[in-house]
Simulated scan of single mutants.
Amino acid sequence: MTLPAYQTLASDENRAIIGAKLPALKAGDLQIQSERLPYSALQAKVQPFLAGQGWVMCRGEVLRQTELPAEHDLLEAEYCLGEQSLHIRLEQPGLYRCTLFTAKPEGTLLYRDQLVHSREGGKQVLCYRLWWQLGTTAPDEGRYRPLAQQFLGFSTLSAAEDL
């Protein structure tokens, strides 16, 4: 299904036929670069994101920060700045999966932004971009399948409602 066909299907006129409101989707492109790195190489990857936003999951807590914790504490982290985001996840002792996402405004992928309520409570939310890719081989040929989830940062519910 093409994006214009989806937008027609998602229109208010067809809502009664479908029985639900479909989310608004946009077209774009996402470059994904992933590698396995030791902890000692992570600081160079995180450095460009220090002026942005991020969260870090340590052994005992989740912190809202852009600095790396000590190696023995780091389990997972996400950072963002502009259209780029970085995801770090412990894969095995001493090795981390480091994935860089770079969004582009035009392309063949589809995306929508999603809000996730924060553990901090109140109106604090995390913003993520969900990406889909059109399958080109059986059994997914012609179907959009989930590709990635990109961290976009923190916001308040009232400021993020127009996502």
Results as ranks from 00 to 15, higher is better:
residue 49 F to E: 07
residue 93 P to Y: 02
residue 43 Q to F: 10
residue 78 E to H: 13
residue 127 C to H: 14
residue 34 S to G: 11
residue 72 H to I: 10
residue 128 Y to R: 01
residue 15 R to L: 08
residue 35 E to T: 14
residue 104 K to Y: 13
residue 29 D to K: 07
residue 55 W to G: 03
residue 3 L to N: 08
residue 104 K to C: 08
residue 73 D to C: 06
residue 1 M to I: 12
residue 138 A to T: 15
residue 34 S to N: 08
residue 96 Y to M: 04
residue 49 F to Y: 12
residue 68 L to C: 10
residue 122 G to R: 01
residue 98 C to P: 00
residue 135 G to V: 08
residue 94 G to D: 10
residue 5 A to G: 12
residue 78 E to W: 04
residue 25 L to T: 00
residue 163 L to I: 11
residue 27 A to I: 02
residue 39 Y to E: 05
residue 137 T to I: 13
residue 47 Q to V: 10
residue 150 Q to F: 01
residue 157 L to P: 05
residue 86 L to Y: 02
residue 29 D to A: 15
residue 133 Q to W: 06
residue 66 T to S: 08
residue 76 E to L: 07
residue 35 E to D: 15
residue 112 R to A: 01
residue 8 T to C: 11
residue 51 A to F: 07
residue 155 S to Q: 09
residue 26 K to H: 14
residue 99 T to F: 00
residue 68 L to F: 06
residue 27 A to K: 03
residue 132 W to Q: 12
residue 88 I to S: 06
residue 114 Q to E: 12
residue 69 P to F: 02
residue 103 A to E: 15
residue 153 G to D: 04
residue 6 Y to G: 04
residue 112 R to P: 01
residue 21 K to E: 08
residue 147 L to S: 06
residue 45 K to D: 10
residue 142 G to M: 06
residue 86 L to N: 00
residue 117 H to Y: 13
residue 15 R to T: 09
residue 157 L to Q: 15
residue 154 F to W: 14
residue 32 I to C: 06
residue 39 Y to L: 05
residue 125 V to H: 00
residue 140 D to C: 13
residue 7 Q to D: 12
residue 141 E to D: 12
residue 80 C to W: 01
residue 130 L to I: 05
residue 67 E to A: 08
residue 145 R to L: 13
residue 50 L to G: 05
residue 146 P to H: 06
residue 106 E to W: 06
residue 63 L to Y: 07
residue 80 C to Y: 01
residue 101 F to H: 15
residue 100 L to S: 03
residue 153 G to K: 03
residue 28 G to R: 00
residue 65 Q to L: 09
residue 39 Y to H: 09
